[in-house]
Nucleic acid binder design. Structure first.
Length: 300
DNA sequence: CGTCCAGGTCTAC
DNA sequence: GGTAGACCTGGACGC
C-alpha cells in the first residue's frame, strides 16, 4: 500500500464534514465494490483509472484528515492525481452545502445536520449508480447485494490485491442474457441492465452528461425516466445520491413507512413534499436526512 | 406448502 | 392524468 495523499475534511465553502456521516450516508454506498467501516472511519473501493485498476482506501487517520492509500506499487504522478481526484469525487468533498446548512440551522429537527452531515457518497461514474439503483427496485436488499456482488465478481477488472472494480458499460454489454438470468439472478431487470449497458457502450445514451450543472433538473429527470427500468423512485434516487440534485424526494417502500413512524402516522406523498417545500432545491436531501438521523447509532 | 412482498416499473386501459 | 395486473427472485410468514 502506498500513500497517495491526504485531504482536509471540509466542504466547498469550508463547512464541517463528519466523516462517519459521509460513510453512513446511504445504502448504495455499501454495495460492491465499496466497503465501509463506519466505526473505523474507513471507506474502501476499487476503481478503474485510465486503463489501470486500483483499490483505494480512504481513512480518517486523525480528526479532520483523510489519508488516501492505494494497493500495488506507487502509481506515477498522472495516475496519482487521477486517483486522488476520484477519491474527492466519491466523497463529494468539493460540494458546497453551506446554503443547505443555513436552512437546517433554523429547523430544530435538522439543526444537527450542520455539524457535517448531508454529503452523500457517490460512485466514480453515474453509470455505476444508475445500475445499482435499478438493482434496488422491487426486491429485498439481499437481492440488491447479490446482483451488485455478481456484477463486480464476474465482470469487473481486478486490481492489485485481488479486489475488483465495478464493470463498465462495455463489460456489462458483453455479458450474455444468461449471465443476468443465471448468475446475477436479476430476473426481469436483466434485459433492462443489458439494454442500458449497450446503449451507453454504443454512445446512444450519455449518463455522465447528466452531471452537467447547466442541465435543468427537469431535463435530467426526463432523460432518466426514458431509461429502461427507471421510474419516479429510481430517477429521484439517482439525482439524490449521484447527481447532487436534491430537489426531489425519494418516495418508496422504505422511506414512506420510516417517515410515518417518525411522525406517528402515515402521510400522503403530496403532504410530505409540502412539508419539505421550505428546503427548495434541497428538499430531497432534507427528507433523506430526517429518515437517516439515527444511522450512526445503529453502527455502534 | 401457498401467499405475500421487498428501497418499482411497464403496459394497457 | 390515474389505476389495475403482470413481473423475476427469494426470504418471511401463515396454514
Amino acid at each position: 500500500m502506498a500513500l497517495l495523499g491526504t485531504f482536509d475534511l471540509a466542504g466547498g465553502a469550508g463547512e464541517p464534514v463528519d466523516y462517519r456521516r459521509v460513510l453512513a450516508s446511504h445504502g448504495v454506498a455499501r454495495l460492491a465494490p465499496l466497503r465501509v467501516d463506519v466505526a473505523g472511519r474507513v471507506l474502501e473501493t476499487t476503481i478503474g483509472a485510465g486503463g489501470t485498476v486500483r483499490t483505494i482506501v480512504m481513512r480518517e487517520a486523525s480528526p479532520g484528515r483523510v489519508d488516501v492509500e492505494v494497493t500495488g506499487r506507487a502509481p506515477g504522478d498522472r495516475a496519482r492525481r487521477g486517483l486522488l481526484e476520484t477519491a474527492r469525487h466519491i466523497l463529494r468533498l468539493d460540494e458546497d452545502l453551506s446554503d443547505f446548512y443555513a436552512l437546517c440551522a433554523s429547523d430544530e429537527t435538522l439543526s444537527w445536520v450542520t455539524t457535517g452531515a448531508g454529503r452523500l457518497i457517490r460512485s466514480p461514474s453515474v453509470f455505476e449508480d444508475v445500475v445499482k439503483t435499478i438493482c434496488t427496485t422491487n426486491c429485498a436488499w439481499s437481492a440488491t447485494v447479490r446482483m451488485a456482488d455478481a456484477l463486480v465478481r464476474e465482470l469487473g477488472d481486478a486490481a492489485p490485491g485481488g479486489r475488483r472494480a465495478f464493470p463498465g458499460p462495455e463489460a456489462m454489454a458483453a455479458a450474455g442474457t444468461e449471465f443476468y438470468r443465471e448468475v446475477a439472478r436479476a430476473g426481469y431487470r436483466g434485459p433492462y441492465l443489458l439494454t442500458l449497458a449497450r446503449d451507453v457502450a454504443d454512445g446512444r445514451v450519455d449518463l455522465e452528461a447528466l452531471a452537467d450543472p447547466e442541465l435543468p433538473d427537469a431535463e435530467v429527470e426526463k432523460r432518466l425516466l426514458a431509461l429502461p427500468g427507471i421510474g419516479p423512485y429510481a430517477a429521484a434516487h439517482i439525482m439524490l445520491i449521484s447527481l447532487g440534485r436534491y430537489g426531489r424526494l425519494v418516495l418508496d417502500s422504505w422511506t414512506r413507512p420510516t417517515y410515518a413512524a417518525l411522525c406517528g402516522r402515515p402521510t400522503a406523498d403530496r403532504a410530505i413534499e409540502h412539508q419539505f417545500r421550505r428546503y427548495g432545491r434541497y428538499a430531497g436531501l432534507a427528507f433523506w436526512l430526517r429518515l437517516t438521523e439515527n444511522w450512526l447509532d445503529r453502527e455502534t
